[in-house]
Simulated assay, not measured.
Amino acid sequence: MSNPVARESTRRRLTAKQADTVDRLGQAAIGVLGREGFSGLTIRMVAAEAGVGAATAYTYFSSKEHLVAEVFWRRLASSPVPPTDSPDSTVRVIAVLRQIALLVADEPELAGAVTNALLGKDPEVEHLRVRIGREIHQRLVTAVGSDHSPDVVESLELLYAGALVRAGMGYASYVQIADRLETSARLLLAGRSNSP
């Protein structure tokens, strides 16, 4: 496996065999979510679908929230950062926000589950939430460029977090949310260029 994220876990560094097991559990979770939804998802059900013992699955994931958060983290961390060669920071920021917003757009059950999972209190989820936040923060800092202000980056993070919650609550599709994020980012960044 060439993807370094595949060999990581919230709990420990993984061998190739362990990474394969975690990957199979993640893929099985997506399948179970599609049929059962987040409320019907259990670690035991995912383990059975992946052909893994429940006890083994619990050595990797403490809860269904942890499992879903890990699936999202792996998807985010392994997704390529959109090209940042445009001289226009607004174009770069919009590319980053759109890409992140659309990571789960084609899988509504997974998308809703991610929102629920990331709001969980499980310590493993809290750890992943920090990792996900750091990754999004770094992508936004890079997109905004050298003239970034911490307030602008934080405002963009708030836009994204609010958009994720709105989409997870079913107010709009993830594609519509990505479009709304673009409009909101343009407004925010236009205000930045007009400020003293």
Rank of each mutant, 00 (worst) to 15 (best):
L97R: 00
L41C: 03
E124L: 00
L14K: 01
L76H: 11
L181Q: 15
E126H: 07
T56N: 05
E65T: 02
I43E: 00
H127D: 14
V153G: 00
A47M: 03
A95M: 06
S146G: 11
E154V: 03
T10D: 06
K64Q: 10
Q18R: 01
I30K: 10
A101C: 11
G31S: 12
Y160L: 12
A6V: 04
M169H: 15
A6R: 12
L181A: 14
I30G: 05
E65L: 01
S79Y: 03
T90G: 00
S173L: 15
A167G: 09
A57K: 00
Q99C: 03
L189W: 08
R192S: 04
W73K: 04
S2H: 08
Q176V: 15
V144P: 04
R35K: 11
G53I: 02
L103V: 11
D23F: 01
R24H: 01
A69Y: 01
L103K: 07
A143C: 07
S149G: 08
A29N: 11
A190I: 06
A117H: 03
A178D: 15
G53H: 10
P80G: 14
Q18A: 08
A77W: 06
F72Q: 12
R134D: 15
L159A: 07
D20F: 00
R11P: 01
R12K: 15
V144Y: 08
R192T: 10
E157V: 07
L102C: 06
E65K: 02
L181D: 13
L33E: 05
D106N: 11
V46N: 03
L97Y: 01
A117I: 02
A57I: 01
L140I: 05
E70K: 02
D88L: 05
L97I: 01
P83S: 12
D85Q: 11
V96L: 11
R92C: 11
R134E: 15
A6T: 10
P82F: 03
Y58W: 05
G168E: 14
T84N: 09
E157H: 07
E135K: 10
F72A: 14
A143D: 05
S39E: 12
E65G: 14
A54I: 02
I30N: 03
V32Q: 13
L110Q: 07
W73A: 07
L76G: 09
D106Y: 04
S184E: 12
P150R: 10
V153M: 00
Q18D: 04
S149F: 02
V175N: 14
P4F: 04
K64I: 09
R13H: 01
R180M: 13
A190N: 09
M169D: 15
E65C: 07
I100M: 13
A95V: 05
T90D: 02
I136M: 09
D151Q: 08
G40R: 06
L14G: 00
T21H: 00
L140C: 06
G162H: 09
A77S: 11
V71K: 09
